[in-house]
Computed example of a mutant assay.
Amino acid sequence: MAERTSSTQRAWRTVLERIEADLLSGALSAGDRLPSERDLAADLGLGRSSVREALRVLEVMGLLRTSTGSGPQAGATVIATPSDGMSTLLRLQVAARGFHLDDVVDTRGVLEDAVVARLCTDPGRDLSSVRGILREMDAADLSPGEFLALDAELHYALAEASGNTVIAAMMAGLRTAIESYILAGAERIDDWDAMTARLRAEHHAIIDAVERGDDRARSLMHAHITGYSAAAGLTPGAY
């Protein structure tokens, strides 16, 4: 039984490696349709079940879009920017504790620094969507959950504004993954009103600095992230 399982896994990987090689060589590119399951199976000398399983995995990963039926739109098509798939994988890994929370928080800090640095040097930066979220966060009647949801949206909007789709996808996955920890941390903050006032002020200071192209926005962002993490108990070893 173990030998049969190993053989099935090797067959499954053969399909993935073939598609990866075709993408790297340029034989396949975004928007292209893959050969049919039958043609792939015949070409690789594998069973159609192995091919089908590999395609399902790639679809879950966000690399492919599949359509049933017949005609020019049927079959599997390569997607240009599989950001949803990357975000999903990160969320699942963190949820399963495949990544330690300390490392996730550290990585978020690295990504946020890269986002702010990129925006500060981009004369064409557009922060209109970020400003819109800031205005929503200034409302006085927000619950902690509503405020922190907008906070996550704000940081993701900054990542999107940076124009780096990989960073934006990673930010989406990491922020969503630790959202429950951040919300739980809010319950450990004695004076939530004072904390929201502080976070609002920090957000405005960061965005103002970015719009000026002031590199001090990076240190402001770092202090913002580490300050809340410490106050909410999201410090190394907290979980």
Rank of each mutant, 00 (worst) to 15 (best):
A231L: 11
R38A: 15
M195Q: 15
G173R: 08
A30H: 14
T196V: 15
T5C: 02
T8V: 14
E179Q: 14
L142P: 00
D214F: 03
S219R: 01
L234R: 02
R18F: 11
E136S: 10
L16I: 14
L90P: 05
H203D: 02
T176L: 05
E179V: 01
F147S: 00
M221Q: 13
P72A: 05
D190C: 06
D84L: 12
V78W: 06
S49V: 13
G75L: 03
G132Q: 01
S143K: 04
A194Q: 13
A169I: 00
T68K: 14
G185T: 05
A177M: 05
R108I: 14
L24E: 13
S6G: 05
Q9W: 04
A223Y: 06
G62S: 10
G85Y: 11
E20Y: 05
A95F: 12
A21G: 08
A140L: 09
R56Q: 14
W192Y: 10
V105H: 04
P236R: 02
L24W: 06
T165M: 10
V51Q: 00
T226M: 06
R131P: 09
S36V: 02
R10F: 08
S49N: 06
V104K: 05
V51H: 00
T77W: 08
S87C: 04
Q73Y: 07
S83A: 14
A30T: 13
G124E: 14
A11T: 04
D32H: 15
P144C: 12
A232G: 00
M221I: 11
T68N: 10
R135T: 09
I79Q: 13
